[in-house]
């Protein structure tokens, strides 16, 4: 017994180190993907509140840019009034139309925290579960795709940005509807890469890349970027395509979270297929 106590006393630093390190790893693994909100709730949302205060101050410095981007977006929306289903604020407008059923509604939000230089980047926005946001919703900005909601607390949500090794967005080349997957290689926040486009598909520079209709997260045809360079490696079956992203991630201020009203229905139907096999 005395030896045991002596042992514990002698190695208590190592044991403490070991315990703390174990705790860190448990937190790291447990909260890594979807339960991250638990951790953010655990720290009381202090960080998010803090960021919001900072943002309220720093937003004044970029009011001009925000205005410009909102004006250009207004102009763009005015041009597509007929089939626009945008809603302002998070009050969702629904239009009673017997031919066109509304499938997507949009919740606007402000970015309160953002990073672009890490390998796995996340964005925090100031709308959460109370505003109708749920995990696995798509997020866009006025220029293009931003990312996917991973976790939600009452007033805030975190978004796995497109600049993240775990984000894969189903995309297609607009002119010939060839499918591919948008994945970021961690190099430059203004470029990403489109993978798995078959090599028989013709690709030229400056081809527009938009979201595909395979994804339940994004409506079809949301702009993503354009082809910057492309090549075919000798032993590959797919194009290597470098995509210049339309979204400027380092200056992201306003985003829209997309709610797909028919998503549950589609997924419930597809789940039936899975249990069938």
């Amino acid at each position: 017994m005395r030896n045991l106590i002596f042992f514990l006393y002698k190695y208590y630093t190592f044991l403490l180190f070991f315990a703390l390190e174990m705790f860190s790893f448990i937190v790291l693994y447990r909260y890594n993907n979807y339960q991250k909100a638990n951790f953010l709730n655990f720290t009381g949302g202090v960080a998010s509140q803090f960021y919001e205060t900072v943002n309220n101050t720093t937003n004044y410095f970029s009011l001009r840019e925000i205005n410009d981007s909102l004006m250009s977006e207004n102009a763009r929306l005015r041009g597509q009034m007929l089939n626009a289903y945008y809603s302002d604020g998070f009050t969702q407008t629904s239009i009673n139309d017997t031919f066109y059923k509304q499938q997507y509604s949009y919740i606007s939000a402000n970015v309160v925290n953002n990073s672009v230089t890490l390998r796995n980047n996340y964005i925090t926005i100031d709308k959460g579960a109370l505003h109708g946001i749920k995990p696995d919703m798509g997020v866009i900005s006025s220029n293009g795709v931003v990312g996917i909601v991973t976790s939600v607390s009452n007033h805030f949500s975190t978004i796995r940005s497109a600049l993240n090794s775990n984000t894969k967005i189903s995309c297609m080349i607009k002119k010939n509807n060839a499918f591919g997957s948008l994945e970021w290689n961690g190099d430059d926040p203004t470029y990403s890469s489109l993978k798995y486009v078959n090599k028989h598909v013709p690709v030229t520079s400056n081809d527009e890349i938009v979201t595909s209709n395979y994804s339940t997260l994004f409506p079809q045809g949301i702009s993503v970027g354009k082809v910057y360079s492309h090549s075919i490696e000798a032993d590959e079956n797919f194009h290597t395509i470098k995509v210049e992203l339309h979204t400027n991630f380092s200056e992201l201020k306003n985003v829209y979270v997309i709610r797909n009203i028919l998503k549950e229905e589609q997924q419930a139907l597809e789940a039936l297929n899975k249990s069938d096999n």
């Binding site: 390190e21 705790f23 937190v27 447990r30 890594n32 951790f39 720290t43 990073s115």
Partner: peptide, 22 residues
């Protein structure tokens, strides 16, 4: 813990900083 809650990366900074402290 503080760094983690401000960069929404639970566990990452904890593990690295404790390692360095040791």
């Amino acid at each position: 813990v503080i760094m983690d809650s401000f960069s929404s990366t639970p566990g990452l900074h904890m593990a690295a900083t404790v390692f360095m402290g040791y």
